[in-house]
Design a protein around this nucleic acid. Structure first.
Lengths: 211, 211
DNA sequence: TTCGTCATGTAATGGGTTACATGATTAC
DNA sequence: GTAATCATGTAACCCATTACATGACGAA
């Protein structure tokens, strides 16, 4: 029953619901704009995941507001339970390969504001050294075979190298700025306003564009 | 039996074997340095794929050289059959979404020298407009929600946008240079140099580093 | 003779997608 | 009243990975 379900979807869902309760359809749109450049999830995986999280008690259906027409149940709004918050924290605290691989790093980073400063630093450094490994191996391979490659392959390698080098520089900046700001403690537990939340409005219902 | 097996592995394998016959172990290393920046395949998927391709008659085991000790069979060297070449050409001729999505584009591009000029152009343009779509949707989403995003999310979006913009510029250059060189017909069948290829060395057996 | 790497494979599993099916709500 | 989009879900499949198992071969 309570299987870790180790994919990125779980993290993405828990992370999103930590910000604000949402129903599935809206949740997916949020996720796909949040991660727009990296990946996109489909309903076919989202809804089963929500069900599993519900089963495990990590999320619950939110009470509909009192003024709801009785027999009506079109949206199902989910919110995080205490266990869900715990689980999210646990996920966000893991550093290690699963945090800095291509598919997962973006998602981890997207929820960095709920991640402890030390962990952030370890993840950023892990990502960086992962990329540097890759650079090394590609560079040496390239040096050995340069003259036997056609121009397309070569161009692909060149562009790939540059992209990764760029990401490494980006990580360097991030790491520096983390190191400078590292004294500050933040997000001691879970529930605090992130920056400025205008609540009281019936959020989770403004129109959003999606593909 | 003869299922298309639509994954990228098939293309990657056929494409590699088109250059030179190889055995599985070496093939994987080649592939993973060729695509080093984008993805890596494991033996657990490679060997079953080779078997399937063998079943379908797209590849065959190459005769071991005559001086091989009789009972000995340690490497199994595969090479492309005529049907295999046909299939490869068919795969490389497909343009359409499957050619310009993230996972597939890199592989398609890696074998561009076996791809017809018009197809190359269509794929590059398809990739570009795919990325531009993504840019549009992320940019408008960003404009709507900018003030409600924390700094990490914002930074992630910014970096993602820049990366994609960079790739678009890269594609622009490639498309330009394709257009200029497009009058030249090339690869009427299979073997010729695209720009400047110095072949003639006995490749396919030098040592290679791998993770 | 033992260790590392080359070399080939299989079984179980995983984490998602596609395509489909179904209704409610909104805009025109 | 009808078309588009919102909203939820399921079943079948896909393409790969992980972990495991085995053995040959070369160098120390």
């Amino acid at each position: 029953m309570t299987g870790p379900r180790g994919g990125m979807l779980e993290l993405a869902v828990l992370g999103s619901l930590h910000e604000t309760p949402l129903h599935g359809y809206e949740l997916r749109k949020r996720l796909n704009t949040l991660l727009g450049m990296f990946r996109a999830f489909s309903y076919g995986s989202l809804y089963p995941c929500l069900r599993a999280l519900l089963n495990d008690g990590l999320i619950t259906e939110e009470e509909p507001p009192a003024d709801t027409v009785i027999g009506r149940r079109s949206k199902i709004v989910y919110k995080l339970t205490a266990e869900g918050k715990e689980r999210l924290h646990e996920l966000l605290t893991q550093s290690g390969p699963s945090s800095w691989e291509d598919e997962s790093f973006g998602i981890r980073f997207a929820f960095f504001r709920h991640t402890e400063a030390e962990v952030r630093l370890r993840i950023l450094e892990g990502r960086r050294s992962r990329l540097e490994e890759r650079l090394d191996s590609v560079r040496t391979a390239l040096a050995r075979t340069r003259e036997r490659l056609d121009s397309y392959t070569l161009e692909l390698q060149r562009h790939g190298l540059e992209s990764v080098e760029r990401e490494v520089r980006w990580l360097n900046e991030l790491i520096d700025s983390e190191r400078r700001g590292t004294t500050a403690r933040e997000d001691p537990s879970t529930t605090e306003r992130p920056h400025a939340v205008q609540d009281g409005t019936k959020r989770a219902d403004m129109p959003e564009a999606d593909e």
